[in-house]
């Protein structure tokens, strides 16, 4: 079972739910918690321990070999991402802008643009009890998260993986959602939460997946959101609770101390494990 916790809006409680659900489920079996929020991976903060490095993730970009280059100009103007500029007698490569399509490298008649690897981040892991926490972590300043997300996804455990997805609805979020059997969307009952929930629901439906919505920090009903949720699978609600926020802020799972959260996790387990 591959379950992704996602949210259109950052800070809605995605990581809170992912860490608590994974820890809760690990009381009765092996669970992998896979952090695919590669720009800001936070799940491991809740489970201190020593990391084991699983993989250094590299992308490939062309490196100019001036000895081989005959200044023929074939590569000039070829790159649609402006990652390569051919001037008279010199080729300049902007490695961070390269999308790794290999066109310039393979079409160079002289082989003067060999592809070379560049590390963009790591996939690493730590274990506590039945729980394996694995994260993809992209280096600060790297701009392309998708290869990093793809690498992290290779470390799913087929039996039970809880994935903490990237926020938003852009390409890296889509990559993770496309690989999920079940999607849980976390939102908050505000106009911002609703706006972003509508966007990510649309993305899930486009991918042919019916999401289950969890409304976090729920107080009195927020009318427009109630109306939206009538069209979805029966949602679950986590009440507004300062203890949950406090345990989260200290980097601790809250469910053993907060019965209302434990109730929601039990209901979630019922829903996702009996399908």
């Amino acid at each position: 079972m591959q379950i992704t916790i996602a949210s259109g809006k950052g800070g809605a409680g995605k990581t809170m739910l992912a860490t608590n659900l994974a820890h809760f489920l690990s009381q009765s079996g092996q669970v992998t918690l896979l952090d695919c929020d590669v720009e800001e991976p936070n799940c491991a903060l809740f489970f201190p321990g020593v990391y084991t490095s699983l993989e250094t993730v590299s992308v490939y970009y062309p490196k100019w070999d001036s000895d081989r280059c005959t200044d023929c100009g074939v590569c000039s103007g070829m790159c649609r991402f402006n990652a390569l500029i051919a001037l008279a007698g010199e080729v300049i490569v902007f490695d961070k802008m390269c999308h790794g399509c290999y066109a310039c490298s393979e079409l160079c008649p002289q082989g003067a643009l060999p592809m070379v690897p560049r590390g963009i981040g790591v996939v690493q892991s730590r274990k506590t009890g039945n729980l394996v926490v694995t994260e993809g972590r992209i280096n600060v300043g790297e701009e392309q998260a998708v290869p990093m997300v793809k690498a992290a996804l290779r470390h799913r455990d087929p039996s039970c993986t809880i994935i903490d997805g990237p926020p938003g609805t852009a390409c890296s979020a889509q990559e993770v959602l496309a690989h999920s059997e079940r999607i849980i969307l976390v939102t908050e009952p505000t106009p911002y939460g609703l706006h972003d929930l509508a966007l990510i629901t649309e993305l899930c439906l486009k991918l042919g997946k019916e999401p289950l919505v969890v409304v976090n920090r729920s107080r009195e009903p927020f009318g427009p959101m109630t109306a939206f949720l009538k069209e979805t699978e029966t949602p679950l609600f986590i009440p507004e609770n300062k203890d949950i926020a406090h345990y989260y802020s200290s980097g601790e799972v809250a469910w053993p101390h907060v019965p209302v959260l434990r109730d929601v996790l039990e209901q979630l387990r019922e829903r996702i494990c009996h399908e």
């Binding site: 990581t15 720009e39 800001e40 936070n42 903060l45 600060v140 300043g141 989260y248 802020s249 200290s250 980097g251």
Partner: peptide, 14 residues
């Protein structure tokens, strides 16, 4: 929160 601090460190470096 620990997450907030962790993310602040990364974005501040940027």
């Amino acid at each position: 929160s620990l997450s907030g601090i962790h993310d602040l460190e990364r974005v501040a470096a940027l």
